[in-house]
Amino acid sequence: MAAAARVLHEQGVERTTLADIAREADVPVGNVYYYFKTKDELVQAALSEHTAHLDELTGRLDRLPDPRDRLKALVRAWVEQRDTAARYGCPTGTLAAELGKRTDGTLDTEAGAVIRRLLDWAAHQFRELELSGANDGKNGGTADAADPDDLALTLVAGYQGMSLLANALRDPDVMTREGARLLGWLDSLR
């Protein structure tokens, strides 16, 4: 599954073959055919891998005591992947965009569900930020005035945009600069 996720990210769905996955996984191609009869099954496996990676990342971030620190650590994790983003784009975002152009299934919806999972996690962090700020008297009203779902959308859209531009321009510094801008934005929410 990890090999499928990597190869699909690097080559795209249409250019990837089962043999490519077998080569990346260092297994005979028959093994891949045994577990995955179609390319769509490989895409589903890659989406499961993206979900597992997201769950692992957010699980680690959830150990941080402050929701703002969790959100900022998420942005830093994105920036750490700047070279990969500049080369291939966001793993889930590029897959979702590619699948969205197909008319032959529901895989685009499944890719959207992974992104929705990230949006929901981020919105939960903004809700906690809003509650903690409202309870300690330090909230200047900014987080109270904004809907947590909208803030999450702004954050994830910022990531998708910087990832797409870093890839289109082949410039990892886009991730660094825009990541710093997102960190500043998170600090401005009081």
Rank of each mutant, 00 (worst) to 15 (best):
A2F: 12
A4Q: 05
Q11N: 14
R15D: 10
T16A: 08
T16G: 06
T17A: 10
A22P: 02
D26E: 12
V29Q: 14
V29T: 10
N31R: 08
V32G: 01
Y34R: 13
Y35R: 13
Y35A: 09
T38M: 01
L42K: 00
Q44R: 15
L47H: 09
E49Y: 12
T51H: 09
A52M: 04
E56V: 06
E56F: 13
R60E: 12
L61W: 00
R63C: 04
R63Q: 13
L64I: 04
L64P: 01
D66E: 15
P67K: 02
R68K: 02
D69K: 02
R70G: 00
K72N: 03
A73N: 05
A73M: 05
A73C: 07
A73Q: 07
R76M: 12
A77C: 05
E80I: 05
Q81I: 03
T84W: 11
Y88R: 11
G89E: 00
C90P: 01
P91H: 01
A96N: 01
G100W: 09
R102H: 03
L107P: 06
A111T: 10
A111P: 06
A113C: 07
A113M: 12
V114W: 07
V114D: 04
R117M: 15
L119W: 11
W121C: 00
W121F: 01
H124M: 08
F126N: 00
F126E: 00
F126A: 00
L129S: 00
L129R: 02
E130Y: 02
E130R: 15
L131Q: 14
G133Y: 14
A134L: 12
D136N: 12
D136E: 04
G140Q: 06
G141K: 13
G141Y: 09
D144T: 13
D147F: 02
D147V: 05
A157P: 06
Q160W: 03
G161T: 03
M162R: 04
S163N: 10
S163D: 08
L164P: 03
N167G: 03
A168P: 02
R170W: 06
R170Y: 06
D171H: 13
V174W: 01
M175W: 03
R177Y: 10
A180C: 07
R181M: 13
L182C: 05
W185L: 10
W185H: 12
